[in-house]
Amino acid sequence: MKRTIELNGNRYDMPAEVGNVQELLGHLELAERIVIVEMNRDILAKDAYDLPINDRDQIEIIHFVGGG
């Protein structure tokens, strides 16, 4: 089933192979980064990254970077 979510303020069509938050981080090449993930206004603990992503979910991801 096609799922469209809101990711960091933008409409985002979920790739079929991405089922949960961990897989989304992998798809976005953020799996190795330090990230903070908010899903539908709640911050997700690391052990909740296996939560499935559903149509119309709102997800915000902020990753830490070094530069400045």
Binding site: N8, G9, N10, I36, I43, E60, I62
Partner: peptide, 20 residues
């Protein structure tokens, strides 16, 4: 708030992190 912006993709996020 923890906030981010990507000026190339237009992505932006603002997360209230007080629970952390």
């Amino acid at each position: 708030k923890l906030e981010s912006a990507d000026l190339w993709t237009g992505n932006r996020a603002s997360i209230g992190v007080s629970s952390m």
